Simulated assay, not measured.
Amino acid sequence: MHDAKIRERGAGAVAPAPRARGRRRRGRELLHALPWIGPAVVLISVVVLWPVVEMVRTSFLKISSSGLTLGSQGGKNYSDLFAEDDLVGILIRTVLWVAAVVIVTMVVSLALAQLLNARFPGRRVVRWAVIVPWAASVLMTALVWKWMLDNYFGVVNRVLLDLHVLHEPVNWLSHPDQAMMWMMWVAVFVSLPFASFVILAGLQTIPGEVYEAARVDGAGTFRTYFRITLPMLRPALLIASIINVINVFNSFPIIWAMTQGGPGHATDTTTTFMYKIAFFDQDVGESAAMAVVNFVLILVMVLFYLRASRWREEVR
């Protein structure tokens, strides 16, 4: 009995050894992988993490228009920002802008990806044509649409007048609601190619045998689409949606080129408002505080979307 207890204590004392060996082995594996992942870690630290740290640090400083640091501001930049009369309206408009553009983009991209995945004459040419809005400069695309919407010489007014839809030219971009609708259209226009090709890639990974099995079981077109295609497209939809949320949230060129956030702040989003604070009001610290709020909003929206789409199920 006594010997058995001694053996049990001995076994208990030796038990942690495998765990220690496992930790040492993982440490050696990490050291072996470091030359490969090290450059990526350095790049991410310099390009992503360091600017974020600087942004947060700047939001607590008083900085002159020439870029000279004049000392700490504490939380004054944030208190000044939240005291802005137009901030609440701009935040609500930004969320609506992102939600509307991303939802419409994803719905249209689903249909467009199905078209691009079908076999028809000239499919390759159509695929190349779809890439054009994505390959072109976003700023130039926005400027072209601004010229097309000109109330005197724009092609939109000209066509609508010739079709007798309008009786007189309309200055589309001078009315905030109409201007937002047109800017949303341009944002969808430039977002469609990326989302469509991501979904197209997802469609091409679905095995044909799955559809054959569904047809054998008597599943119709709609049932096959909603029970097989959409569930298997979830990873592609997740990637396309998240990247679109981030891109649309930070979409500065479209709004600035078409309306500059005007009249007043009527079509501003957080990005254009941030720019105006920095370069019109010459308040770099408050602009940095707006950048931090913008960054947090993006994270919240992405996390909310991940939560709503139950992304962990994909990991399992």
Rank of each mutant, 00 (worst) to 15 (best):
M1H: 12
M1R: 15
H2W: 12
H2Q: 15
H2T: 04
H2E: 12
G12D: 08
P16E: 10
A17F: 15
R19S: 10
A20E: 12
G22M: 09
R23F: 14
R25I: 13
E29S: 08
E29N: 11
L30D: 05
L30I: 14
H32P: 08
H32Q: 14
P35Q: 10
P35D: 11
P35Y: 07
P35H: 12
W36V: 14
A40I: 01
V41F: 13
L43P: 07
L43E: 14
V47L: 14
V52H: 04
E54A: 15
M55T: 13
T58C: 01
F60N: 01
F60Y: 00
S66N: 14
L68R: 15
T69H: 14
L70E: 15
L70T: 11
L70S: 08
G75V: 13
D80N: 01
L81H: 02
L81S: 06
L81R: 01
F82M: 07
A83D: 12
A83T: 10
I90C: 00
I92G: 12
I92D: 06
A99S: 08
V101E: 04
I103D: 07
M106C: 03
A113G: 05
N117W: 05
G122C: 12
G122S: 08
W128R: 10
V130A: 12
P133Q: 03
A135R: 11
S137G: 08
V138G: 11
L139G: 10
M140H: 04
L143D: 11
L149Q: 02
N151P: 03
N151R: 13
F153V: 04
F153A: 04
V156G: 13
L160G: 02
H167Q: 11
H167N: 12
Q178M: 13
Q178T: 15
M180L: 13
M183I: 12
M183Q: 02
S191V: 00
S191L: 05
F194Q: 02
A195N: 01
A195F: 05
S196Y: 01
F197H: 10
L200I: 01
P207E: 09
G208S: 01
E209H: 12
E212W: 09
G218D: 09
T221V: 11
R223A: 13
R223G: 15
T224V: 03
R227N: 15
I228V: 05
I228W: 04
M232D: 04
M232L: 14
R234P: 05
S241W: 06
I242Y: 13
I243S: 06
N244P: 07
V245H: 00
V248G: 05
S251T: 14
F252K: 01
P253H: 03
P253N: 05
I254G: 00
I254S: 01
W256I: 04
A257R: 06
M258E: 02
T259L: 09
G261A: 02
P263T: 08
P263D: 07
G264I: 05
H265L: 04
A266V: 03
T267R: 09
D268P: 02
T269S: 00
T269M: 02
T272L: 09
I277F: 07
A278H: 03
F280Q: 13
D281Q: 08
G285E: 02
E286G: 00
A288F: 13
A291L: 02
A291H: 00
V293F: 02
V296S: 04
I298K: 01
R307H: 08
S309N: 10
R310Y: 05
R312S: 15
V315Y: 12
R316P: 05
